[in-house]
Computed example of a mutant assay.
Amino acid sequence: MNNIFERDLNGEMVSPNDQGYDELITDIFDTMKTATEMNTGYKTPAEVHEYMKRILGKPLDESTTVLPPFYVDYGKPVTIGKRCFIQQCCTFFGRGGVIIGDDVFIGPKCNLITINHDVNPDNRSATYGRPIVIEDKVWIGINSTILPGVKIGYGSIVGAQSVVTHDVPPMTIVAGNPARTIKKIEINHE
């Protein structure tokens, strides 16, 4: 049987009654403590990278910028590519897994949420995760929310204050709540 961290990442239902749940919650609080330390007072880019290494459990590429404050429940299942720019006040619920490609821009106050609750009201405290995948060269506008299981295709743009509930095809602009296709991105190479 998988441990609770593997079950969580595999998208299985995880309940406070499950064996290992206390360990999961302890890791979440440890991650949040590290993020709070990073978010308190001014930190140099090098200091932010050190904190992010602790949060992610792996180094953040030197070419990537994260502007605190940055809020995260669990960072180990989060992978962030090269030359990314993540603005301040973003929230990542990373338990279900987040993969961010290269050259991704994430505006201020964006939310990447990989966790959902059981629809059964008698089991509402149980959660399950679905990964979020953001391919290379995506731009996510200010105050947007990406919901569990969504994949945002290469080069796409998510308009400000959008709630993305479904996959976004490559080279597409989406906006709204729920986000809908606005248009395809056409590149003129004259």
Rank of each mutant, 00 (worst) to 15 (best):
K183M: 09
F93L: 14
E47S: 12
K76C: 10
A175M: 05
G153S: 11
I113A: 11
F105A: 15
W139V: 10
G11Y: 00
C89G: 10
P148V: 00
L60D: 00
Q87K: 15
K137N: 15
G107R: 03
D61N: 08
T36R: 14
P121Y: 10
Y154C: 07
E190Y: 02
M52V: 04
S63Y: 11
I152D: 08
P121N: 11
N2P: 15
G94D: 11
F92I: 13
L24P: 01
V14L: 05
V72D: 01
I142F: 13
P131F: 10
N2F: 11
M13E: 15
L147P: 04
I55H: 14
L147G: 06
Q88H: 14
V48C: 05
G97A: 07
V174K: 02
G101V: 08
R95Q: 15
I4F: 08
E186M: 09
R95L: 14
N120P: 00
S162Y: 13
L24Y: 03
N39F: 03
K151N: 07
T79C: 06
G97H: 05
I25D: 08
T91F: 15
G41Y: 05
A175K: 02
I142M: 14
N10G: 01
F92C: 02
A175E: 06
I152T: 10
G176N: 01
P69W: 04
T172F: 05
R180T: 02
D8H: 00
